[in-house]
Design a protein around this nucleic acid. Structure first.
Lengths: 262, 262
DNA sequence: CCCTATGTTCCATTATTTGGAACTCAATTT
DNA sequence: AAATTGAGTTCCAAATAATGGAACATAGGG
């Protein structure tokens, strides 16, 4: 049977179920059975039984027209995951301070695999709902936090991650080659901060700094984000120091409160 | 091995993994391997392998001191679940209106099993972070929304649910018997709204009304919540109508936009 | 009425999980 | 320093659950 060496993991039955769950969650509209069947490439019986199990567990929900969508149980599980992410709590005051100083949206994110997961967000305007972004995953190579966090990893680990990336062009400025990313990464290591120059979304720019989380094997970052019309290169440059100070502060706090005991 | 008829479900391997995940998520502080082993009652080898799988899938995370806590992947999955909960989106304007009218915190929740899951919350003070409650599960028998939603179910279904409850006294006013709950339920059916008279948390009161979600086999509710010192019985009574109107409005909107197609 | 698309169920075969025991590695205790 | 305890990890034959091909059901057209 030989486990696929390239990918490595083999989480058996659970892994298969999760792949299916991902498939449904990732779709931006409810899928019908046949859609899932087609996308999964697995045989009918198998898919059907697995979906049934996921529904019974509350991880998926099935509509009257037998469309599948993510289930509520995910919400309650995540609520706990979020609550117990004490790193987030530790960072909160520093994020607020940075927001006051800059007046723009501040994000906190961590690296998971090749994605950045947003843990928290501070913004002034209420109109855009807060949760909308929390927990969201974005590719590492086109976000300020992603690139900043990457610059913190040991070089060979960073290169390994980069080698495995699947670049997708979101905007004209998106970095779309490993070579270009490696080059930018070198600059980020020197400067201590990273920019996102409308690389993920047109009209959105940011400066980010990496947070060193000793102990926890995790790379994280903070960023200040704003619309291009209001935030020019000069302002980004100008904020870089504040962002770096914030990152350092969070790193120290975390080391203090998560390091010794916990 | 004869499936436990009383409980019914048998989601095989997935179910077992999820039970373990719940166990870890439900604990309010990170558990070590032995804690989990003890609480699960399963044999060593089994627990160890399952935890390993959960970690590999990102559903759990393991700290340097080999403690387990909920993983970040739950956040990203839930982000999608929340985004695609179009019911929440439909309800949002009505919730805001109710908040403006009453000036107190407004909740939207749905019934899942014997719990109420909070889908959304509108409040004025920013100090208490919004997410803190979203996705949270609270027992059905001591929350306004829970009791209201229950009043919507067919009587025998409600009774079946009630019979299966495991009452826990949170405050002196908590309802702690099936008989008392059945009685109150009758009153709620007549009135069309439910109160929470400091039954879940001391000093916190609320009025809730059930939302009828035709089609979707789901019972939901809206509530207005406030601190006892500011919200007397009279005020609660006074808001009852507004809450009922809001519930009706959400129900109609949902029927319109989720019923025909979708 | 037949045809097709879609969703559901069945069951012998096959692969995965199980769980008891043995093993490692530190930190105590004797 | 040797023995003991406690915590985490690994192993593998036996038990159990997942697989997937095919048959069955159901609904909408043409």
């Amino acid at each position: 049977m030989a486990v696929d060496k390239a990918k490595g993991r083999d989480t058996g039955t659970l892994g298969k179920a999760m792949r299916l769950l991902d498939l449904v969650a990732e779709a931006d509209l409810p899928l019908r059975f046949s859609d899932i069947l087609a996308r999964s490439g697995e045989p009918r019986g198998t898919v059907h039984r697995q979906l049934t199990h996921l529904v019974e567990e509350g991880l998926l929900e099935i509509g009257s027209d037998s469309t599948y969508r993510p289930g509520l149980r995910l919400l309650s599980l995540a609520a706990r995951a979020w609550a117990s992410a004490d790193f987030r709590e530790i960072a909160a005051p520093a994020l607020r301070a940075l927001h006051e100083e800059t007046g723009e949206t501040v994000h906190l994110g961590v690296l998971r695999g090749t994605d950045v997961i947003y843990l928290d967000k501070v913004e002034s305007r209420q109109s855009v709902r807060m949760h909308s972004q929390i927990g969201k995953a974005s590719p590492l190579y086109c976000t300020g936090i992603g690139k900043a966090a990457l610059s913190l990893l040991p070089k060979e680990e960073a290169s390994r991650l980069i080698a495995g990336l699947d670049f997708h062009r979101f905007t004209p400025s998106t970095i779309t080659s490993a070579a270009a990313l490696e080059e930018e990464l070198e600059a980020i290591r020197m400067a201590g901060h990273a920019f996102d120059r409308e690389e993920h979304e047109e009209g959105i720019r940011c400066v980010a700094a990496p947070i060193r989380l000793s102990g926890s094997e995790r790379a994280a970052g903070v960023s200040v984000t704003g619309p291009a019309f209001r935030v020019g290169r000069d302002r980004l440059e100008h904020w870089a120091d504040a962002v770096k100070r914030t990152a350092a502060r969070i790193g120290e706090e975390a080391a203090l409160r998560l390091g010794p005991r916990h």
